[in-house]
Design a protein around this nucleic acid. Structure first.
Lengths: 147, 147
DNA sequence: CTAAATGCAAACTCTTTGCAGATCC
DNA sequence: GGATCTGCAAAGAGTTTGCATTTAG
């Protein structure tokens, strides 16, 4: 599976006329290994000690991945740093727990419903929907109920 | 109406134990005058030349307004700077046009439907919903169709 | 071999902070 | 009068960039 991922990246890069390099593989692997929603700083920490890629390369690589549709950037709520994740083809949105800080994906039909609503009634050509819900997750609610 | 707004701010500040000052009024007025979704920098530009408030005060004041529920901060898409608007009590979300840069409010039942969905099925206590849709607005689509 | 990519360090943007002096109540 | 707030300037995060060197194709 690791092999599959790597091959996929290589092909995508070559297909777009970019070179396959160590730093790019390293950032890609770190991004996949992360549970999603990592900052560039976290990826850098993961990748610089072993000398796989410099901080500047991490930023440059992430920008490239975004452009190629491989990664997705988002600023959840009022967070200071941008967060990165592997681009998912499926409709999803983010649930941010204000208590424990956990960020969950929530897959559902909501995003496509929003899409349909805007395309139909309002003639707005939707390119991207970013839905971030802040609140208290089920686990934290349970902890509060039974202290 | 300008009087009403000012009185409202004054009361809100006093009720929370804060002082009514020139800079706070100036930032509030600039925020109301703006069509929404202004950056702190834009507000500063509006307010510093006439010596009504310093940049640092703009930031401090906006943070205070947010805490009092008078203003709302959001980072639309991958924008670098945060954008501010007067807090609306009604359910709404943002439509960002990738072509002309226009940001529209869209008022509708979608946000409350998202809320209900999560509260009901998933026991997630919703505190805030931020929905940002990026795409091409109706006007820009028309311009492309009829060049 | 040559264009593209990297590392390093410095620059840049947005935002926050420390502190002396001004201001509201 | 005394705590709160402000302006100024400097510091702090996060991110980008210029340039010499390395590297993939």
């Amino acid at each position: 599976m690791t092999t599959n991922e790597r091959v996929d990246l290589d092909e995508r890069l070559r297909a777009a006329g970019y070179r396959v390099t160590g730093p790019r593989r390293a950032v890609w692997n770190a991004l996949r290994a992360a549970s999603g929603h990592v900052t560039a700083e976290q990826l850098t920490a993961q990748v610089t000690p072993s000398g796989q890629a410099d901080q500047a390369s991490v930023y440059r690589t992430l920008a490239l991945f975004e452009q190629l549709g491989l990664a997705r950037q988002s600023r959840l709520g009022d967070a200071d740093a941008a967060r990165w994740e592997v681009a998912h083809p499926d409709e999803h949105f983010h649930l941010v727990c204000a208590n424990c800080g956990d960020i969950d994906h929530h897959v559902g039909s909501l995003v496509s419903r929003i899409r349909d609503h805007l395309e139909g009634d309002h003639r707005f050509e939707v390119r991207d929907v970013e839905l971030v819900v802040t609140g208290i997750c089920a686990r934290c609610r349970d902890d509060e109920d039974t202290p």
